[in-house]
Protein backbone atom coordinates (compact mmCIF):
# COMPACT_ATOMS: atom_id res chain seq x y z
CA UNK A 1 0.00 0.00 0.00
CA UNK A 2 2.68 2.53 1.05
CA UNK A 3 4.82 1.89 -2.06
CA UNK A 4 1.75 2.33 -4.27
CA UNK A 5 0.79 5.62 -2.63
CA UNK A 6 4.34 7.03 -2.67
CA UNK A 7 4.88 5.92 -6.29
CA UNK A 8 1.58 7.57 -7.30
CA UNK A 9 2.49 10.85 -5.57
CA UNK A 10 5.95 10.76 -7.17
CA UNK A 11 4.43 10.04 -10.59
CA UNK A 12 2.04 13.02 -10.25
CA UNK A 13 4.97 15.26 -9.24
CA UNK A 14 7.00 14.07 -12.25
CA UNK A 15 4.06 14.74 -14.59
CA UNK A 16 3.66 18.28 -13.17
CA UNK A 17 7.39 18.84 -13.56
CA UNK A 18 7.32 17.59 -17.15
CA UNK A 19 4.44 19.76 -18.34
CA UNK A 20 5.13 22.99 -16.42
CA UNK A 21 6.82 25.92 -18.18
CA UNK A 22 10.36 26.17 -16.85
CA UNK A 23 12.53 29.20 -16.19
CA UNK A 24 15.77 27.32 -15.59
CA UNK A 25 17.87 25.56 -18.21
CA UNK A 26 18.11 21.77 -18.23
CA UNK A 27 21.68 21.86 -16.91
CA UNK A 28 20.67 24.21 -14.08
CA UNK A 29 17.92 21.78 -13.13
CA UNK A 30 20.33 18.82 -13.20
CA UNK A 31 22.54 20.76 -10.78
CA UNK A 32 19.52 21.63 -8.61
CA UNK A 33 18.44 17.99 -8.51
CA UNK A 34 21.92 17.00 -7.31
CA UNK A 35 22.21 19.64 -4.58
CA UNK A 36 18.59 19.34 -3.42
CA UNK A 37 19.04 15.58 -2.98
CA UNK A 38 22.32 16.06 -1.10
CA UNK A 39 20.86 18.74 1.21
CA UNK A 40 17.63 16.86 1.83
CA UNK A 41 19.40 13.54 2.55
CA UNK A 42 21.88 15.25 4.90
CA UNK A 43 19.16 17.02 6.90
CA UNK A 44 17.01 13.89 7.02
CA UNK A 45 19.98 11.72 8.10
CA UNK A 46 20.74 14.09 10.99
CA UNK A 47 17.09 14.21 12.09
CA UNK A 48 16.51 10.49 11.63
CA UNK A 49 19.80 8.72 12.43
CA UNK A 50 21.57 11.14 14.78
CA UNK A 51 18.77 12.91 16.66
CA UNK A 52 16.19 10.13 16.31
CA UNK A 53 13.39 12.71 16.23
CA UNK A 54 11.64 10.43 13.76
CA UNK A 55 12.27 6.89 12.58
CA UNK A 56 11.70 5.15 9.27
CA UNK A 57 10.13 1.71 9.31
CA UNK A 58 12.60 -1.18 8.92
CA UNK A 59 10.13 -3.18 6.83
CA UNK A 60 11.01 -3.55 3.14
CA UNK A 61 7.88 -1.96 1.65
CA UNK A 62 7.83 1.08 3.91
CA UNK A 63 11.59 1.69 3.62
CA UNK A 64 11.39 1.46 -0.15
CA UNK A 65 8.44 3.87 -0.19
CA UNK A 66 10.49 6.31 1.89
CA UNK A 67 13.44 6.00 -0.52
CA UNK A 68 11.18 6.80 -3.51
CA UNK A 69 10.14 10.03 -1.81
CA UNK A 70 13.60 11.06 -0.57
CA UNK A 71 15.55 10.26 -3.74
CA UNK A 72 13.03 11.33 -6.39
CA UNK A 73 9.93 13.16 -5.24
CA UNK A 74 11.22 15.73 -2.71
CA UNK A 75 14.17 17.03 -4.82
CA UNK A 76 11.90 17.33 -7.88
CA UNK A 77 9.23 19.23 -5.92
CA UNK A 78 11.86 21.81 -4.97
CA UNK A 79 13.00 22.16 -8.58
CA UNK A 80 9.34 22.89 -9.39
CA UNK A 81 9.17 25.37 -6.47
CA UNK A 82 12.34 27.13 -7.65
CA UNK A 83 11.00 27.45 -11.20
CA UNK A 84 7.75 28.89 -9.83
CA UNK A 85 9.69 31.38 -7.68
CA UNK A 86 11.36 32.64 -10.86
CA UNK A 87 8.00 33.44 -12.50
CA UNK A 88 7.09 37.12 -12.74
CA UNK A 89 3.82 36.54 -10.84
CA UNK A 90 3.75 38.73 -7.74
CA UNK A 91 1.22 37.05 -5.44
CA UNK A 92 0.35 33.69 -6.97
CA UNK A 93 3.87 32.25 -6.77
CA UNK A 94 3.97 32.73 -2.99
CA UNK A 95 0.53 31.14 -2.71
CA UNK A 96 1.78 28.11 -4.67
CA UNK A 97 4.85 27.89 -2.41
CA UNK A 98 2.59 27.92 0.69
CA UNK A 99 0.51 25.24 -1.06
CA UNK A 100 3.65 23.11 -1.51
CA UNK A 101 4.50 23.40 2.22
CA UNK A 102 0.89 22.42 3.10
CA UNK A 103 1.24 19.45 0.71
CA UNK A 104 4.30 18.29 2.67
CA UNK A 105 2.48 18.70 6.00
CA UNK A 106 -0.34 16.51 4.68
CA UNK A 107 2.20 14.06 3.23
CA UNK A 108 3.93 13.63 6.61
CA UNK A 109 0.55 12.85 8.21
CA UNK A 110 -0.11 10.33 5.43
CA UNK A 111 3.34 8.72 5.85
CA UNK A 112 2.71 8.34 9.57
CA UNK A 113 -0.70 6.77 8.91
CA UNK A 114 0.86 4.35 6.38
CA UNK A 115 3.54 3.37 8.92
CA UNK A 116 6.42 4.66 6.78
CA UNK A 117 7.66 7.05 9.47
CA UNK A 118 7.08 7.27 13.20
CA UNK A 119 7.31 10.72 14.75
CA UNK A 120 8.88 10.96 18.23
CA UNK A 121 10.09 14.49 18.97
CA UNK A 122 8.45 16.18 16.05
CA UNK A 123 5.62 18.60 15.38
CA UNK A 124 4.04 20.47 12.49
CA UNK A 125 6.34 23.51 12.93
CA UNK A 126 9.45 21.37 12.40
CA UNK A 127 7.88 20.13 9.15
CA UNK A 128 7.23 23.73 8.06
CA UNK A 129 10.77 24.84 9.00
CA UNK A 130 12.40 21.83 7.32
CA UNK A 131 10.57 22.12 4.01
CA UNK A 132 10.82 25.93 3.96
CA UNK A 133 14.58 25.58 4.42
CA UNK A 134 14.68 23.19 1.44
CA UNK A 135 12.85 25.78 -0.67
CA UNK A 136 15.23 28.58 0.42
CA UNK A 137 18.27 26.38 -0.21
CA UNK A 138 17.02 25.39 -3.67
CA UNK A 139 16.39 29.04 -4.61
CA UNK A 140 19.88 30.06 -3.40
CA UNK A 141 21.49 27.24 -5.37
CA UNK A 142 19.54 28.30 -8.48
CA UNK A 143 20.88 31.84 -8.04
CA UNK A 144 24.41 30.40 -7.65
CA UNK A 145 24.35 28.21 -10.76
CA UNK A 146 22.66 30.82 -12.97
CA UNK A 147 25.25 33.42 -11.94
CA UNK A 148 28.14 30.95 -12.33
CA UNK A 149 27.23 30.74 -15.99
CA UNK A 150 26.53 34.44 -16.44
CA UNK A 151 29.90 35.64 -15.14
CA UNK A 152 31.67 33.44 -17.64
CA UNK A 153 29.58 34.63 -20.56
CA UNK A 154 30.67 38.19 -19.67
CA UNK A 155 34.33 37.09 -19.66
CA UNK A 156 34.00 35.59 -23.13
Amino acid sequence: MSVGVCALVTWIVLIIFTVMPKKLSELDMVFLYFVNTIFELSVFSIVHINLKWLTVSHRVEESFADLILRLIMIPVVFIIATNILLYSWKFLKWMILIGIIIFFIMLSFLLEKLGVITLHHWNIFYTIIMFSSYAVFSRLMAWFIVNAGRKEVKKI
Binding site: L27, V30, F31, F34, V35, A148, G149, K151, E152
Partner: peptide, 10 residues
Amino acid sequence: PKKFSIVFFM
Protein backbone atom coordinates in the same frame (compact mmCIF):
# COMPACT_ATOMS: atom_id res chain seq x y z
CA PRO B 1 33.01 26.38 -18.74
CA LYS B 2 32.64 26.96 -14.99
CA LYS B 3 29.00 25.86 -14.89
CA PHE B 4 29.82 22.53 -16.53
CA SER B 5 32.81 22.00 -14.22
CA ILE B 6 30.53 22.52 -11.20
CA VAL B 7 27.94 20.04 -12.55
CA PHE B 8 30.62 17.48 -13.46
CA PHE B 9 32.06 17.80 -9.92
CA MET B 10 28.61 17.45 -8.36
